[in-house]
Structure formats: structure tokens, C-alpha cells
Design a protein around this nucleic acid. Structure first.
Lengths: 173, 173
DNA sequence: TTAGAAATATAATGATCGTTCTATTTATCA
DNA sequence: TGATAAATAGAACGATCATTATATTTCTAA
């Protein structure tokens, strides 16, 4: 991945996350990334293609974070909750970018929509892989998503504390 | 509220919820509502003004539903969870419209942003009014928001079942 | 040094955005 | 019926949208 291309992805992710995909034009992205518009079309087929690359890189970072916590703990539920707390603390609180992308492209046949659905199914599968049954996996993910939303209105540190507490008492070890 | 004005609000709410605010133009709204564009500007100062009216009516409906359940139950936490489940079941699963509006207008001084923050603070206050302390109120709202998000990916009935179960075991009666 | 690739600036495309203006028609009600 | 208000169609505004074309410059590697 060339430096220019990565700059585009990074600035696109930040702007899309802060304002939404439809709300941000390509001109704003290339300007802030110090890249020519034609360079963007040299690297990506379309805006939709850029969005998908943003989501793909973000997904990789998220699962890498989850894995690094799970691999160094013996309480997998709490490890996931701690990883998610760290994820939340590391950026602005503007909700889950994956769900927001799905909500903007709510046609279930749209590539962005199907990508997000697959991402959330991958998250559920990740949890189940750590020896949680279907019900506990759903409960854990519900708590993670609730923390992401609540942190938009309540201080993220307070939310993280409650998340970890609730996961400990709710999810069967 | 004249019939034409209410038609505008209803169709705007549906379109905004399904696709997002920036993604929907006023032309689409007035066309589907069978109303002239100038009629919309006769009733609302701007698109932002229309958005605020949509949120206001939606907020009224949501709190009315919460109140009706709380007033006919002695388990207030479960009553709120049941009301929220009914709310989710009664429409498409595209997330919390209030948080989504806030996310699209993430400038904390924007009227839409401040309206949503006030709405979520009102929700927390509503819960606290039912004899829940600050911590339990936050936990309950976290569970509600988590259910809203999870229902975008998992069958809403399954989510509602888990929500009510988690509320019962998590929130001190 | 030089050939080929990458990135650039600029302009044009047709479409849509929110908003405003004008002029005409329709509905309401005393 | 006649007066007042509500709603209408249609065009125009300047701005921005995603995308494409053209032509020039900068970088890179042999």
C-alpha cells in the first residue's frame, strides 16, 4: 500500500467516522490528505470502494486488539471487555462505524451492508470460539454494543467500568 | 398540526431513519409525502427545523410508551425493558435514530446534537425517577442501547428475550 | 541519464443539494 | 358568494456531489 493511498484511507476513516459517509465529499478527503483527486481514482474504483477499504482496515485493527487481549488473559470475557474499552478510549465517541455504515446503506444487497453484516457475524464467531455458547456470545456482544452507544452520552471511563463489571457478573466463565 | 405538515414529518422520519439525514434530499420527502416543496418551507424554516420536529415527535412517542408500561407494572426495570422491546419490534432495525442524528451532526454546539444529548439525559432521568440509583440507571440504559444495536444484526425477538433476561438479573430491584 | 510510472492541476460532466422567488390554483370559512 | 389563507407548479439560485478526461509535472528505478 503506497503512502498516498494509506493517507487517503486514514483521512477518509476519520472524516467518515466523525460526520458520516454521505455527509463527506471526496474533495474534502483528498484536500485534507494532501492528495490529488485523480490519485484517489487511481487507487480506488469509486467512493464505495474507498469506504470498503476503510472498513476492512478498521476491522483488522479491531480484531487484532481483541486477539492481543484474549491471548494474554485467562478470563476471556473480561479480556474482550477490556479490549473493547481500550478501543473506545482510543478515539472520539461517535458510535460504531460499522453499524453506521450499514445504516447509511440499508439496502441488504449493497456491498457495504453485506460487509458490515459479515463483520458482526465474525465478531459473534470470535466470541464463540473462546468457549462461549450462542446465548453468552450474544449477551457479550450486546454489552459491547451498548457500551459503544452509551459512551456517546456518558463519560467513556465510567462506561468502561460498568461494562467490565456487567460482563463479569453476566457472562458465565 | 395540519395534515400536510404531519404527512411531511411522518415521511421525513421514515426516510431519515432508513437512509440517514444527509442521504435524503427534501425533494424525495415532499414527493413521497405528496406535498409541494414550498409547503414544506411554509411549515418549516429549514431542513434542520424539520429534523428537530421529527426527533421531538419520536421522543414523545418513545416516552409515552415507556410511561404506559411503567404505570402498569411493579417491576420497573423489566417494564422498561419490555417497552423498549416493543419499540424495537414495531419498526425496522436501523439503530437508534437519536444517536444517528447526533453522529451526523457531531458538532456539540449544533442544535440537533444538543437535542439528542438532552434526550438521552432525559432517558437517564426517567430511569432514575423509578427509584434507580445512578449506576443502575446507566446499566439499564446500556442494556437498552445494546439491544437496539444488536437487533440490527440478530433477530429482534431473540434480542428482546436476552434483553429482558439480562435486565432481570443485572438491575437491582 | 533516461524511460516509465505515479501524482499532479484543471476543467468539464450531469445530477442533486438546500433555499428562494413568482405566480397561480385550491381550500376554508364567515 | 367573497375574502382570506393554504397549497400548488415551476423555475432559478449558487453550491456541491461523484466521476471522467486531458495534459503536465514529479518521482523512481534501471
Amino acid at each position: 500500500m503506497s503512502k498516498k493511498k494509506q493517507d487517503l484511507v486514514d483521512h477518509a476513516e476519520s472524516l467518515f467516522y466523525n460526520y458520516g459517509i454521505h455527509a463527506i465529499g471526496l474533495k474534502r478527503i483528498v484536500t485534507e490528505a494532501n492528495v490529488a483527486l485523480m490519485t484517489m481514482y487511481n487507487h480506488f474504483e469509486s467512493k464505495e470502494d474507498l469506504v470498503l477499504e476503510v472498513l476492512k482496515q478498521r476491522e483488522d485493527r479491531y480484531f487484532d486488539l481483541l486477539r492481543s487481549h484474549v491471548n494474554t488473559s485467562d478470563n476471556q470475557a473480561l479480556a474482550i471487555a477490556r479490549a473493547h474499552s481500550e478501543w473506545l478510549r482510543s478515539s472520539r465517541q461517535n458510535g460504531c462505524m460499522f453499524l453506521r455504515a450499514k445504516e447509511e446503506y440499508s439496502d441488504p444487497t449493497h456491498p457495504i451492508n453485506t460487509y458490515v453484516v459479515a463483520h458482526k457475524e465474525a465478531l459473534l464467531a470470535f466470541v464463540k470460539k473462546e468457549n462461549f455458547n450462542h446465548e453468552d456470545a450474544m449477551r457479550l456482544v450486546l454489552l459491547l454494543e451498548g457500551a459503544t452507544s452509551l459512551a456517546e452520552v456518558v463519560d467513556v471511563d465510567e462506561v468502561a467500568t460498568q461494562l467490565q463489571s456487567m460482563v463479569t457478573t453476566t457472562i458465565g466463565e
